[in-house]
């Protein structure tokens, strides 16, 4: 324990980089998921095809392959070298965004057809229908899976040390190399990853509750802080992003 406490500031630096990549990647993944998810619900074949290609390609490639590709192949092909942290954010964002797009598409399609009919009867345009009625309702359904995806994304960032980003895992390696204490060095990293995950889960749970309240629902499991701290339910599908 003494061992870890002495090196705590070092770990904190790494954790901060991990958090930055996690938040940056999540923001990118969110934008991509929304854009391609909505494209996937349009009747015309072209936007749907674009969405399918994005989803299948970036779900098919492991985030790690993507990171390698961006770090080694892209500069080779284009002569342009991305900032490494940015490349890391791009890779995990593109990867998780593909999973998110499927979540968004499914959630939009799950909004009852009768709701869409009501918007026709009120003569709302496609844009108004999406913004005012469909997305706010689909939102509550997306959030639990988004919560899982954020955790998956955080876990996926553990490979970014491979392209030279000094994240939490990189720090564990440094400590190991300096002291030879692999077990303790990596134990420290695991504990901090776990803490970050718990904070992320807590934050997503807050968003979920707010969304459910907006729909006039009481979240399952009751209200109050106790319900917030209870462990989340992992749905059958939706998890399992590379990382």
């Amino acid at each position: 324990m003494q061992f870890l406490i002495e090196r705590f500031p070092l770990y904190l630096d790494g954790a901060w980089v991990t958090v930055q990549i996690t938040l940056g990647g999540s923001a990118l993944a969110f934008v991509l998921a929304m854009a391609f998810g909505i494209l996937g619900t349009i009747k015309h074949w072209l936007p749907r095809a674009v969405a399918t290609v994005y989803v299948e390609v970036f779900r098919g490639i492991a985030a790690m392959v993507l990171i390698f590709w961006m770090a080694y192949v892209l500069p080779d092909l284009t002569g342009y070298r991305l900032d490494r942290t940015f490349a890391a954010i791009l890779a995990v964002g593109l990867n998780v965004g593909a999973y998110g797009a499927e979540v968004v598409r499914a959630a939009i399609n799950a909004v009852p057809k009768t709701q869409v009919e009501a918007t026709v009867a009120l003569n709302l345009s496609w844009f108004q229908r999406m913004r005012l009625v469909v997305l706010p309702q689909a939102w509550a359904q997306m959030l639990p899976t988004f919560g899982n995806l954020v955790i998956e994304l955080m876990k996926a960032t553990a490979v970014v040390y491979l392209i030279g980003v000094v994240d939490l895992t990189a720090i564990a390696r440094q400590v190991r190399d300096a002291t030879g204490e692999t077990v303790i060095a990596y134990m420290g990293a695991l504990l901090i990853y776990f803490l970050i995950a718990q904070v992320l889960i807590f934050g997503m749970r807050l968003l979920e509750r707010r969304a459910n309240r907006k729909l006039g629902r009481t979240p399952p499991g009751g209200t109050g802080l106790g319900a917030l701290l209870r462990h989340p339910v992992v749905p059958g599908a939706g998890g399992g992003v590379s990382g």
């Binding site: 709701q115 009120l122 108004q128 005012l132 009625v133 309702q137 006039g216």
Partner: peptide, 19 residues
């Protein structure tokens, strides 16, 4: 087919405002 994401007021004023 009321919109569950809106209050009663919002349900009624949404289309008059936007359409």
């Amino acid at each position: 087919n009321l919109f569950p994401n809106m209050t009663v007021r919002k349900n009624v004023i949404e289309a008059p405002v936007h359409v």
